[in-house]
Amino acid sequence: MDRIEKTVMVIAIVLLVVFFGAIVVAATSYGVDVPTCVTDRKPFVESAPPFKTSDQPLRYEVHTVARMWMFDPPEITVPPGAEIDFYLSSADVVHGYHVEGTNINLMAVPGAVTYARLKFDREGSYSVLCHEYCGTAHHLMAGTIVVSHRAMEGEQ
């Protein structure tokens, strides 16, 4: 290899190390992470709308069941600032769960539970799409997350 080739190789390695370093920093310092292996929850077929799990005011947990061809619950409503623990399970085949415009992008895989957490600051309606092919009516499988002050009033 001549000098230029060696230089190119070093530049390429440095570039890739910088990229990878940025990913690691995002995951460790900013908590931008991917779903992991959940071993303390069994797959479920009973859904649960957002409910509180602690004394903290805006912490919720939701259990969503994906099945051919709907999400259960199809629509959930939370107040602005809500931090939701999403647990996702499939009752039949593989489905997707993508909350548009957010980092909640999950697979519902039969036999296992998928978990992710997100805080919803902006008020509005977020569509949730099944983005994994799950049979003939896959394109009709969608849901909604509504972030609204009215959710707060309903509780009181």
Binding site: F20, A27, D33, V34, P35, T36, L88, L106, M107, G111
Partner: peptide, 20 residues
């Protein structure tokens, strides 16, 4: 499989590194 259950985030990070 970054978005999937039943695989730990550590394995996912290692495979990400090897992809680089």
């Amino acid at each position: 499989q970054f978005a999937e259950p039943a695989i730990s985030s550590g394995s996912k990070l290692l495979h990400s590194f090897l992809t680089f």
